[in-house]
Computed example of a mutant assay.
Amino acid sequence: MSSRLASFKGPSTPNSSPVQHRQASNIPSSPAKSTESTFHRKLRTLLQELRAATDIWDDLILIDGLKAAKSLVDARTELDNALSSAPNRLPRTRIVGPKLDLMEQRIHDLDGVLAKLQKQFRKMTAIVDNLEVLVIDAYRNKGCQWVQQEPLWTTWSLEKFASTIPEILIPYHRALNGHIALVNALRSHSISFEESRSAISTWTEQPWLEGSGWEANWEELCSVEIDRWNR
Score class of each variant (00 low, 15 high):
residue 4 R to H: 10
residue 9 K to D: 09
residue 10 G to K: 07
residue 11 P to C: 11
residue 15 N to G: 15
residue 16 S to A: 11
residue 18 P to K: 01
residue 20 Q to S: 14
residue 42 K to E: 15
residue 43 L to T: 01
residue 46 L to C: 08
residue 47 L to M: 08
residue 47 L to R: 04
residue 55 D to L: 13
residue 58 D to C: 02
residue 58 D to W: 04
residue 58 D to N: 12
residue 59 D to K: 10
residue 61 I to M: 12
residue 61 I to F: 02
residue 62 L to P: 00
residue 63 I to V: 15
residue 70 K to W: 06
residue 71 S to A: 15
residue 87 P to V: 07
residue 91 P to E: 09
residue 92 R to L: 14
residue 96 V to M: 03
residue 98 P to S: 07
residue 101 D to L: 13
residue 102 L to T: 14
residue 105 Q to F: 04
residue 115 A to E: 14
residue 116 K to D: 14
residue 117 L to H: 11
residue 118 Q to W: 02
residue 118 Q to P: 00
residue 122 R to W: 08
residue 126 A to G: 12
residue 129 D to E: 15
residue 132 E to M: 09
residue 134 L to M: 07
residue 135 V to S: 11
residue 137 D to L: 08
residue 138 A to E: 04
residue 141 N to I: 04
residue 141 N to C: 08
residue 144 C to L: 13
residue 144 C to T: 12
residue 149 Q to W: 05
residue 151 P to G: 06
residue 154 T to A: 06
residue 158 L to Y: 00
residue 158 L to H: 00
residue 161 F to K: 06
residue 163 S to V: 12
residue 166 P to I: 00
residue 168 I to T: 03
residue 169 L to Y: 02
residue 173 H to Y: 03
residue 173 H to L: 06
residue 177 N to C: 01
residue 180 I to C: 07
residue 181 A to N: 11
residue 187 R to P: 03
residue 198 S to N: 11
residue 199 A to N: 03
residue 203 W to R: 09
residue 207 P to C: 09
residue 209 L to K: 05
residue 211 G to I: 07
residue 211 G to S: 06
residue 219 E to F: 01
residue 219 E to S: 13
residue 220 E to N: 08
residue 224 V to Y: 14
residue 229 W to N: 06
residue 230 N to M: 09
residue 230 N to Q: 14
residue 231 R to T: 07
